[in-house]
Design a protein around this nucleic acid. Structure first.
Length: 1026
RNA sequence: GGGCAUGUAGCUCAGGUGGUUAGAGCGUACGCCUGAUAAGCGUAAGGUCGAUGGUUCGAGUCCAUCCAUGCCCA
């Protein structure tokens, strides 16, 4: 095939053994799924985590504080992504010279674990309520413990380095564990969480209020949304009229309705002429009624307001014709949403009506309604309070009447509409307290006069008499105008399958807008909301959009409900006075509680005689009630900074970084911020990093039903953890990511290319020795590579500092492919393989490859810990690469002028490469070593740059000729490189049997008739040494 | 429905303050090499920059609306 005249007689010798070919055990195929566990074992054996701590003792700390995953079930791809990103942060800072100590943690309390234990009970036919609470809690604890163990192994398998070994005895005995992961259920954590909530209590930030919750009468328990199932259910419906009264200022008030405070009205209704006129015209709503429709007649005693839609078109309607005995009489005037008026009026069985005029939301705000039971006998005028009309976006005109009966104790939207209006209500002299109309037994309480003792739902889950009693009462007062039945979906308990109700229940809140007094950790000043907003401004967000998202939530959120009527958690360790409802503030009691928790865990609160024990000698146990609610688990995890960061000698408070998924703006970032601002006056973090969610390959959410889920365990089994980690590193984690078969294959391909470049370096470096090389005197090409290292050094370290791992991965992989594999290595193979051992050129190249290797391996180590460890030890190092700091380039290597010249050289190289490709196509050459390109360069400066280097080597040809002058029209040119043309001739001479270059002086050395002079000299040297 | 984001080649990403034919790596196709060989090198194809409308001499880049996807609320 070769066009080179060959002389078989002289090419008999096999010179390949005399070349310095790459030599390495480092396999091309990684076999990661099998190899990685071996590295894990090695790190365990050397106790990498502890060795790191020891080696970096005294260095500046960099602390990423772990957001605790929930100890329930195997990890999924999102958890893996999160932990891998955290590991990037930790490892990259460790290698940058910090002491980056990572202590993982787990969230152990809460509902899902309770469910699992209850489920196990049900399977055995047991009932949770039959089991002593302390025993139940013990089972929850064991369950959490099991999953901490499972997840711990899964996290370590990802290559995450941190303080993972758990000493269970230490966690469940007195004293703060000073090593191992933190657990929200350790005794020390439970004690500290209690201390934190007691700070809120003793500073008056914690208060008892109320809120409607879904309640199952059958099970006597509050239910979470996830515990509710929706079934069809037949409900009674009623349509009720609420007569209107003009709000003060005109002097007209209906009997029994308290006039509003004059000040507010004077503000809203200034007495100028225009308004006075408008007022007079509007007067005809006096005595008209707004109309509501509801499927829960039993909530009428709890009614406190009527909501309207500010943008809904309403009309005033007069009944012109109705049967004598009809509930809605002729002459009645009612207000309805126009789109619904006909439907409603038909349902009232009136036979004639007319629309009088438009009514707007703004006009309605000038009126109040009275309660339909204002005139109900036997209620002692209880219901004579004013019923305000509240604007609410939850009101629609698709169904009903366009007005919504608002019973704040019986619905979330009702509650919110009421609470949003709270300030205005108080200003108008209306009591914003929400009545407890229904008790835990489903019976009306004394807060529902006229109905007390009647059942809404019986303890069997049947409908009680409440609905009929209310309908009768509404008929009696004449407020009802229609009734009916409707079949709709209604929430039921997932256990009993019986309907649930919303009922107002006492709950504990942390106030957002109360001035905070001094705490043990921070001086007085500001409200929780003010403090949190200020703290957000002082926090760095990556990406920056996180700031607005978190701030928006803090600015608008209501008070924080921290109580749960559950068993598995830290109790709200507070005593309330039986009569006054006052919270006991006694530091000695608080200290006793915390001390007991530290020794025994929070179970101490639930043990028999706990009340007497903690109050002994301080307060009368008969006078004080013990709160048995537990804390929302968000308070637990919001306190991790207090019981972990602040309490461990090897950590520090505040954390440098919190890093979680973007859902945690509502979750952990949020609760930690509030908790810390309430007790310590600032955020527990300096920087907040967020990542997006992992989608399936098509960019859609993963779901089991779609069958497009992918588990990290499976990826590890098929590709290895390093591939999963490289996937993490190659994406912009701040946005949502995609994962799937094709994407993983692509990542594995990219990995393989990088691995091969490393493999080649290892093989080449097998021939290196330790003799020093003066790099300043190295050839230009070597100095160019050193220059690139100097530039990359700054770039890579800056990217790590910015937490920009995709920049690191893309930059280094592109560098390895484009500048090393396809350029530097390709060019230098000749010198590295063929030059004599003593050749300065070869020795310089080896020295540079050595630097390149150290740079790439240490720079990639945080991302590919397994592969880089394998590379590092394959180079003959005894220790771990993870004990190293980053390779650092000598700033003196930077040579921009040199780089600029080489930029020119490479432009010319591209033209030559193009020309060679044409020759190959035409089958005139195969290897570029068969060619002798003749390059014509018009520009003198460009030509000088090319002439200054060994251009034949650069284009991997056996010879090259550079000429000045205008480009040859008939020769090969590239439009983007004007003034350069190339013609390609065949190299003259014979093919050197060792280097395969085609040179005229092959055989010049008579000892080696088939070699070029360079190779002959190399052979002489090698043979002399042998 | 509301708040906050995102949308550039098959995949993963670059594209400060608007300016000539929109870039890279990987993958793909084709070719070369056979001394990095289940590797290495080269060449090529591949994009209505989510859509529409607007501002401008000129927009991937600015504005508006819409669509799609996601997170958090309702």
């Amino acid at each position: 095939m070769s066009v080179t005249p060959s002389e078989p007689a002289t090419e008999t010798r096999d010179y390949s053994k005399t070349l310095f070919l790459p030599q390495t055990e480092f396999p091309m195929r990684a076999g990661l799924p099998k190899k990685e566990p071996e590295w894990l074992a090695k790190w365990k054996e050397m106790d990498l985590y502890k060795s790191l701590r020891k080696a970096s003792a005294g260095r500046e700390k960099f602390i990423l504080h772990d957001g605790p995953p929930y100890a329930n079930g195997n990890i999924h791809i999102g958890t893996a992504l999160n932990k891998i990103l955290k590991d990037f942060v930790v490892r990259s800072h460790q290698m940058a010279g910090y002491d980056a100590n990572y202590v993982p943690g787990w969230d152990c309390h809460g509902l899902p674990i309770e469910w699992k234990i209850e489920e196990q009970y049900r399977a055995k036919g047991k009932n949770k309520d039959e089991v002593p609470i302390v025993q139940f809690r013990a089972e929850c604890r064991d369950y959490a413990r099991h999953w901490v163990g499972v997840q711990r192994e899964e996290f370590e398998r990802l290559g995450v380095v941190g303080d993972f070994p758990v000493d269970w005895d230490e966690n469940f005995s007195a004293g703060v564990p000073q090593s191992g992961p933190y657990l929200t259920m350790s005794y020390a954590a439970e004690a500290e969480i209690a201390r934190e909530i007691m700070i809120f209590a003793s500073t008056g930030q914690l208060y008892r209020g109320s809120k409607p919750v879904m309640w199952s009468v059958v099970e006597r328990t509050a239910l979470a949304e996830a515990e509710v199932e929706y079934y069809d259910y037949q409900s009674d419906t009623i349509t009720v009229a609420f007569p209107l009264t003009k709000i003060a200022g005109t002097g007209a008030t209906a009997a029994g309705v308290t006039p509003a405070a004059g000040g507010m009205m004077a503000h809203e209704m200034p007495m100028d002429v225009t308004h006075a006129e408008a007022h007079a015209a509007a007067g005809d709503l006096e005595g008209a009624s707004v109309v509501i429709w509801t499927t829960t007649p039993w909530t009428i005693p709890g009614n406190r307001a009527v909501s309207y839609g500010p943008t809904i078109a309403y009309g005033l309607y007069t009944v012109t014709e109705a049967a004598e005995d009809n509930w809605l009489k002729a002459g009645a005037r009612i207000i309805l949403a126009d789109t619904l008026a006909d439907e409603v009026l038909k349902s009232t069985r009136v036979t004639g009506w007319e629309r009088v005029r438009d009514v707007t939301g703004a006009e309605l705000s000038g009126y109040r309604a009275s309660h339909p039971y204002a005139t109900l006998d036997g209620t002692n005028g209880f219901y004579t309070f004013p019923v305000p009309l509240l604007p609410g976006d939850h009101v629609t005109d698709d169904a009903g009447t366009g007005f919504v009966h608002t019973a704040p104790g019986h619905g979330v939207e009702d509650f919110e509409a009421w609470m949003n209006a709270r300030r205005d209500l108080e200003a108008a002299g209306i009591n914003p307290a929400i009545p407890y109309t229904v008790g835990p037994d489903g019976l009306y309480t004394k807060d529902a006069p006229g109905f007390e003792g009647l059942a809404v739902i019986t303890d069997k889950g049947e409908k009680g008499k409440a609905n009929q009693a209310n309908i009768d009462a509404l008929v009696a007062t004449g407020a009802i105008i229609a009734r009916g039945r409707v079949k709709h979906t209604y929430p039921h308990s997932w256990r009993s399958k019986k309907p649930v109700i919303f009922r107002n229940t006492p709950q504990w809140f942390i106030a957002m807008d109360r001035e905070i007094p001094a705490t043990p950790f921070a001086p007085a000043g500001g409200t929780l909301r003010e403090r949190a907003v200020a703290a957000i401004d002082e926090t760095q967000f990556v990406p920056p959009a996180g700031r607005n998202r978190l701030r928006g939530m803090i600015e608008n959120r209501p008070d924080w409900v921290v109580s749960r009527q559950r068993a598995w958690g830290v109790p709200i360790t507070v005593f309330v006075h039986a009569e006054t409802g006052e919270v006991l503030k006694d530091d000695a009691v608080n200290a006793a509680i915390a001390a007991a928790f530290e020794a025994e865990g929070a179970d101490a609160w639930f043990a028999d005689g706990a009340k007497e024990r903690f109050l002994a000698g301080r307060a009368d146990a008969d006078q004080w009630q013990m709160v048995t609610d537990i804390l929302d688990v968000w308070f637990d995890s919001g306190s991790t900074h207090a019981f972990c960061l602040a309490k461990r000698a090897d950590l520090q408070w505040p954390a440098d970084v919190y890093l979680e998924g973007s859902d945690q703006h509502r979750g952990w970032f949020h609760s930690s911020l509030l908790e810390s601002c309430g007790t310590r006056g600032r955020a527990p973090y300096k920087t907040v990093i967020t990542h997006g969610f992992t989608m399936a390959e098509d960019g859609r959410k993963m779901s089991k039903s779609l069958g497009n889920t992918i588990a990290p365990q499976d990826i590890i089994k098929e590709f290895g953890a390093d591939i999963l980690r490289l996937w993490v590193a190659s994406q912009d984690y701040s946005d949502d990511q995609r994962i799937g078969k094709e994407i993983m294959k692509g990542v594995a391909d990219a990995y393989r290319k990088l691995r091969n470049s490393i493999r080649w370096m290892l093989g080449t470096l097998a021939h290196a020795d330790d003799a020093p090389v003066d790099l300043a005197a190295a050839p230009e090409l070597e100095r160019l590579m050193l220059h690139r290292l100097a530039v990359l050094d700054a770039d890579i370290k800056d990217a790590y500092r910015r937490f920009d791992y995709s920049h690191v991965a893309h930059t280094l992989m592109t560098f390895a492919n484009v500048e090393l594999s396809a350029f530097y290595f390709d060019i230098r193979k000749d010198a590295l393989y063929c030059d004599a051992p003593s050749s300065p050129r070869r020795r310089a190249a080896l020295a540079v490859v050595d630097k390149l290797f150290d740079a790439i391996v240490t720079w990639m180590a945080p991302i590919l810990p397994f592969t880089m460890e394998e590379s590092w030890t394959s180079r003959g190092h005894e220790g771990s690469v993870h004990m190293e700091t980053y390779f650092t380039a000598d700033p003196a290597w930077r040579d921009d002028a040199l780089a600029a010249r080489w930029e020119k050289v490479r432009r010319v190289r591209r033209v030559v490469t193009g020309a060679l490709e044409v020759e190959r196509r035409e089958k005139r050459i195969g290897s570029s070593l068969e060619a002798h390109p003749v390059v014509t360069i018009a520009d003198d400066e460009l030509r000088a740059a090319v002439e200054a280097v060994d251009f034949a080597d650069v284009v991997i040809a056996s010879a090259v000729t550079i000429k000045g002058g205008a480009a040859d029209e008939s020769a090969f040119t590239l439009p983007e490189v004007p003034g350069v043309s190339v013609t390609v001739g065949l190299a003259e001479g014979r093919r050197c049997a060792r280097s395969w270059k085609v040179l005229p002086d092959v055989g010049a050395d008579p000892r080696y008739p088939d070699l070029s002079p360079r190779d002959a000299a190399a052979m002489a040297e090698i043979e002399a040494a042998a």
